[in-house]
Amino acid sequence: MSATAEGPARSAPRRKIDFHVLGPILALAALIVLGALINGNFLSYGNLSNVLSRSAFIGIIAVGMTFVITAGGLDLSVGSMAAFIAGLMILVMNAAMPATGTGLATVLIGMAAALAAGLAAGLLNGLLVTRAGIEPFIVTLGTMGVYRSLVTWMADGGTLSLDFDLRSFYGPVYYGTVAGISWPILVFAAVAVAGEIAMRRMPFGRHCAAIGASEKVARYSAVEVDRVRLATYAALGLLVGVATIMYVPRLGSASASTGLLWELEAIAAVIIGGTVLKGGSGRIWGTVVGVLILSLIGNILNLTDVVSPYLNGAIQGGIIILAVLMQRGSTARE
């Protein structure tokens, strides 16, 4: 017996709340209430702005990850890829500065390099998966190690730092605001909206879900399976580039520890949001909720002394499992 993938049947009355859809939202609401009770500053503009801005990197990546996972794939390399692109971007901008000066031109060159590198890295993952036919887990485990080593090598084991003057010019891309909303939040929102449209309203999203549900059926339905899967990896790479563009101006540096475990956070956010890890069904808005849940947990733990910081990981893990349990609970028994 398989569960109906979409919402409740129109004709059958439902008394129960549909946790499958509402689970993540309820968890988010509960966290917000909890945060507000624990600390009065939690709902302040400053705190919310901070939390949303720093969720943006994982968020932008997680949107791309949703497509990859929906199409039955996986990408473990995104954290290392982000570190590699950040390092590359810094090197490119530092190198270009003598020629192009401290200004827009240099930053644009850096951004172009980040997007190009992201696209290329994503294509590489995608081609290895589709053309060479290697499992995505193995391909991206491999590239994860490659990118992590490359950034360590580029930085000589230390830290790559953006030129100080360029840093202050580029800084507003992370710290600046439009109408009181910071740039990372705006970019994250734009990426999420575009992702939601592509997933729900465009053939691309439908094709991803079909491939994830059954690659054979998709192939027999003349879906260009390899091309779509390649596109999911390429899009994810590109979004890692976008995330890096938002990340670099924050601290102006990259090192071997940049983007550590981002891949797991992104995957966790996707799954908390209701996307199925084995593919076939994905929800972008769910992913956004998942990202917010993850960063709010960290924020709330930092705002309180109730639990030992040694237990932070346990609490995060517990909440992740709980959030997924809430949405699966209603379907698992069927």
Partner: peptide, 21 residues
């Protein structure tokens, strides 16, 4: 079952998959 239909997907999504363009 194995190659024709996405068994877990609703009818409309199955119907239009081949001609989705």
């Amino acid at each position: 079952k194995g190659r024709g239909l996405l068994l877990e997907k609703p009818l409309a999504e199955n119907l239009t998959l081949l001609a989705l363009g």
